[in-house]
């Protein structure tokens, strides 16, 4: 999280109190979203996400592995996230911070709970299944990594090609098959600042927020939730956020659908 000076923070709070915010947005709208697929042609699937000034690359690689012992006929899904030191002055070199761990786990939870990837289709033979590696790389941090990463990951998975597995080897030439996708999930992250709720916070808004709530949902159901930071939410606020999230996610799903080949 970025630290900002008191003058900036009071200016932002003043705007929020008046129902305004930086960038001529209202409290319930997203910044511009741009998804670019096939950004990394070497990867089996990839998407470059721009959410305002937040920039993320999601790369997908397929590997062959043993299944989890309790799910012997299902493929594996592994989501990891890197907050690269080049993305913000606050990010440091070294083992993942608790923020980075939470970030990766929340993105993973939404995708897993919504059953985005058809894991049954990834069975190869006994004790051999495909593993889908989803790597989220943050290139430039300007807030709301959760939603940007979920958009990028789902869009990349939607356009992932399948290598072949022949005679104990993974063959990546002339990939024709596609990864089977069963569902689309998106997330909406809300910041609470002085008892006001703001969708899609920027990094300066995140630095003054009291708490944060992320709702991941598909068309009809909530699939994952995560509250963050010290501030509490009333049940009424949570219900309002859930209602608004279902309304806002329609557009996000359309953006993902548009990138589908």
């Amino acid at each position: 999280m970025q630290k900002i000076n008191m003058i900036k923070s009071e200016y932002l709070r003043g705007l929020v109190a008046k129902g305004m915010r930086e960038g001529l947005r209202d409290h319930f709208s997203y910044r511009d979203i741009k998804l670019t697929n096939k950004f990394i042609p070497n990867a089996e699937g990839s998407t470059h996400v721009e959410l305002g000034n937040t920039k993320i690359v999601v790369g997908i690689k397929m590997g062959v592995d043993s299944p989890m012992p309790d799910r012997p006929t299902e493929g594996n899904l592994q989501v990891s996230a890197e907050l690269l030191p080049l993305a913000s002055a606050e990010y440091e070199v070294g083992p993942p911070s608790p923020d980075a761990v939470e970030f990766a786990r929340v993105v993973d939870r939404g995708i897993r709970a919504a059953g985005v990837v058809d894991l049954d289709s990834l069975f190869i033979e006994e004790d051999k299944v495909w593993t889908v590696f989803v790597d989220v790389y943050v290139l430039n941090f300007d807030g709301n990594l959760f939603d940007a990463a979920t958009l990028g990951a789902v869009s990349a998975l939607n356009n992932t090609k399948m290598p072949r597995y022949e005679d104990g080897k993974v063959i990546r030439e002339n990939m024709t098959g596609k990864l089977k996708i069963n569902n689309v999930v998106t997330s909406c992250t809300w910041a609470k600042i002085d008892n006001k709720l703001l969708l899609d916070p920027t990094s300066s808004e995140e630095s003054i927020m009291d708490s944060r709530l992320t709702i991941a949902n598909d068309k009809d159901n909530i699939r994952a939730m995560q509250k963050g930071l010290h501030g509490p939410f009333t049940a009424k606020e949570v219900e309002e956020i859930i209602d608004k999230t279902f309304e806002k996610s329609k557009n996000l799903r359309q953006i993902i659908e548009k990138t589908k080949e």
Binding site: R109, G110, R112, A113, A114, L213, N221, I222, R223, A224, M225, Q226, K227, H230, P232, F233, T234, A235, V238
Partner: peptide, 11 residues
Amino acid sequence: ELSLLQMDGIL
């Protein structure tokens, strides 16, 4: 007030 809220699954 809620000070912890997490969820995964379908709801």
